[in-house]
Computed example of a mutant assay.
Amino acid sequence: MSHASTENLNVAAFDPMPSPGEIKARVRLTDTAAQTVTEGRRTLQRILDRQDPRFLVIVGPCSIHDPSAGIEYARRLRQLAEELSETLYVVMRVYFEKPRTSTGWKGFINDPRMDDSFHIEEGMERGRRFLLDVAEFGLPAATEALDPISPQYYGDLVSWTAIGARTAESQTHREMASGLSTPVGFKNGTDGSLDAATNGILSASAAHSFLGINDKGEAAIIRTRGNRYSHLVLRGGGGRPNYDTVSVSLAEQALAKAKLPQNIIVDCSHANSWKKPELQPLVMRDVVSQVVAGNQSIIGVMIESFLEAGNQPIPANLAELKRGCSVTDACIGWDTTETLLRASAESLRSLVAARAEKL
């Protein structure tokens, strides 16, 4: 007796994908890059433990779509980061995966050619190469963990990881965060609530066992130790920002109630700036003022920034793309970024120096 097929009814194809080990063999971790990553993670841990007095700034494009323009941005940022290193600790935002409410371009790894050809194998290798280049500059990188398999391919080149507002409530992402080698920032929900993030932090701090893949690309049971460096990222939501002093105080109370460390990063973009990039500097200035006035819980900020201000749709003819301009969320331009970081460093200089003396 024959049976009708009962599986993969909506699957069009199973295309081969190189294993993490194969991709890593093509784009090998160098000693210089490994040192950048290790020092980046260690510094971030020290900031979270209040052993490093500097203010954290995670800044860069909303998403990487043009590696050439991204590398130019990284070169500029590395130089600025070095100049301001006594006061600010700068990490470059390198996002390859973009969550979508419905449909749209899902990022460089999913569709590197931006033509719906979905050469994920190409995107993964090129994405890893970009992270390697950034690390070779001596610049630590931050990214969002969206696909639970992707960290096996390039997680060794990342110093900080975000769990986004849409996935903070996901058990899959909480389990993944528990095994990541980086500090992990959980964003509050898109409705502005803190419960998903605080529960996510609690969950990620515990050990978990779940299905995944190993370096050979084989199915594996992944058993984690738990990640004690998870923390809260305020990004606004529910139609209002949440970086103001009242919202920050409520976040501190929520963390205290959950018996979690008072570690908060403010995302200056998204709902905190009403998705208007020109408002990001106002948000950062407000946050810096709170820190100067004595706030102890805010350890840093996130900023969406690229070579050119604004954003652009993806045209049918990719040659028409404006170089260094985002194809996802709108960003502030480089000149505004440089001015903002220099002004923030100046405002925080005395405070950071005073903190350093106490250590």
Results as ranks from 00 to 15, higher is better:
Met1Pro: 12
Ser2Thr: 12
Ser2Cys: 12
Ser2Gln: 13
His3Cys: 14
Asn10His: 15
Val11Lys: 11
Ala12Phe: 15
Pro16Arg: 08
Met17Trp: 07
Met17Leu: 15
Pro20Val: 03
Gly21Gln: 06
Arg26Trp: 03
Val27Ile: 14
Leu29Glu: 02
Thr30Ile: 06
Ala33Cys: 11
Thr36Phe: 05
Thr36Leu: 10
Val37Gly: 04
Thr38Arg: 15
Glu39Thr: 14
Glu39Asp: 14
Asp49Cys: 05
Asp52Tyr: 02
Val57Tyr: 01
Ser63Ala: 13
Ser63Gly: 03
Ile64Phe: 02
Ala69Tyr: 08
Gly70Leu: 06
Ser85His: 13
Glu86Arg: 11
Tyr89Pro: 03
Tyr89Gly: 00
Tyr89His: 11
Met92Phe: 02
Met92Pro: 03
Arg93Glu: 00
Pro99Met: 02
Thr101Val: 12
Gly104Ile: 02
Lys106Ala: 09
Ile109Pro: 00
Ile109Asn: 06
Met114Asp: 10
Met114Lys: 09
Asp116Pro: 09
Ser117Pro: 06
Phe118Asn: 03
His119Phe: 12
Ile120Trp: 04
Ile120Pro: 02
Gly123Arg: 01
Glu125His: 04
Gly127Asp: 08
Arg129Met: 10
Leu131Tyr: 06
Thr143Gly: 04
Thr143Arg: 03
Pro151Arg: 05
Val158Leu: 09
Thr161Gln: 01
Ile163Gln: 03
Thr167Gly: 00
Thr167Ser: 13
Ser170Ala: 10
Gln171Pro: 07
Ser178Asn: 01
Ser178Leu: 07
Gly179Val: 08
Phe186Trp: 04
Phe186Ile: 09
Thr190Asp: 01
Ser193Phe: 09
Ala197His: 04
Ser203Thr: 08
Ala204Ser: 12
Ala206Cys: 13
Ala206His: 12
Ala207Lys: 11
Leu211Asn: 09
Asn214Met: 05
Lys216Ser: 13
Ala219Arg: 13
Arg223Lys: 15
Arg235Glu: 07
Gly236Met: 02
Gly238Lys: 07
Gly238Asp: 06
Gly239Ile: 04
Arg240Leu: 09
Asp244Leu: 07
Asp244Trp: 00
Val246Ser: 12
Val248Asp: 08
Leu250Glu: 14
Ala256Gly: 00
Ala256Leu: 09
Lys259Gln: 13
Leu260Cys: 08
Ile264Gln: 01
Val266Ile: 15
Val266Phe: 06
Glu278Tyr: 02
Gln280Ile: 04
Leu282Met: 12
Leu282Lys: 14
Asp286His: 14
Gln290Cys: 06
Ala293His: 14
Ala293Glu: 14
Gly294Pro: 01
Ser297Leu: 10
Gly300Asn: 05
Ile303Phe: 00
Glu304Leu: 05
Leu307Phe: 05
Glu308Thr: 11
Ala309Phe: 04
Asn311Glu: 05
Gln312Ser: 04
Pro313Leu: 11
Pro313Glu: 10
Ile314Gly: 10
Ala316Ile: 14
Ala316Glu: 15
Asn317His: 09
Leu321Pro: 02
Thr328Met: 03
Asp329Met: 04
Cys331Glu: 06
Leu341Asp: 04
Ala343Val: 13
Ser344Phe: 02
Ser344Pro: 04
Glu346Lys: 14
Ser347Cys: 11
Ser347Ala: 15
Arg349Pro: 07
Arg349Ser: 15
Ala353Phe: 11
Ala356Val: 01
Glu357Pro: 01
